[in-house]
C-alpha cells in the first residue's frame, strides 16, 4: 500500500489530461488544469510523508522521538498551491473576457487563431 498515494496522484493527473483533451468548455478546461495541479501537489506531499515522523521543531519534540519530517516538500507544495491559484485565477479571468467577446465558452468555437 506504500505506493498508493503516488498511484492516486498519477490517476488525478491522467484524469486532468483526459478532461483537457475531451472537454470543450473553458471553465471545465480550467478545472482540468486544477485537477492536474492537485495530483502533482498530492505527489509532492506524499513524497515528504514519513510514517511516525514528527514536525521538525526541536523545542516541541517529545523525548523519545524516532524520526522528524524534512519540511521541504511541504514548503514546495505550499508554493505550488499558490502558483496554481494564480494560474487558475488568470485563466478564469480570460475565460470571462472571452465569453464577453464571443458569447460562448466552447473551445471548439473559439478558434479564430488557426492556420
Amino acid at each position: 500500500m506504500g505506493n498508493m498515494p503516488f498511484v492516486v496522484s498519477m490517476i488525478l493527473v491522467g484524469l486532468g489530461f483526459l478532461a483537457l483533451i475531451t472537454r470543450r468548455n473553458l471553465i471545465k478546461l480550467t478545472i482540468g488544469i486544477s485537477v492536474i495541479e492537485m495530483g502533482v501537489n498530492l505527489f509532492l506531499v506524499s513524497l515528504g510523508y514519513v510514517k511516525g515522523g514528527i514536525a521538525p521543531i526541536y523545542t516541541y519534540a517529545p523525548p523519545g522521538f524516532k524520526e522528524m519530517v524534512f519540511p521541504t516538500p511541504q514548503a514546495l507544495t505550499l508554493t505550488a498551491i499558490v502558483i496554481g491559484l494564480a494560474t487558475t485565477a488568470l485563466m478564469l479571468a480570460f475565460a470571462v473576457v472571452i465569453y464577453r467577446h464571443r458569447g460562448t465558452l466552447d473551445a471548439g468555437k473559439i478558434r479564430e487563431l488557426k492556420g
Binding site: F17, L20, I21, T22, R23, R24, L29, A107, G108, I110, R111, E112, L113, K114, G115
Partner: peptide
C-alpha cells in the same frame, strides 16, 4: 498543415502529450 494548426485547444494538449 493548415488543418494541423486547428486552433482547438484539445489538439494543443494532445500534441503536447
Amino acid at each position: 498543415l493548415g488543418a494541423f494548426h486547428s486552433g482547438f485547444l484539445g489538439d494543443y494538449v494532445g500534441w503536447l502529450l
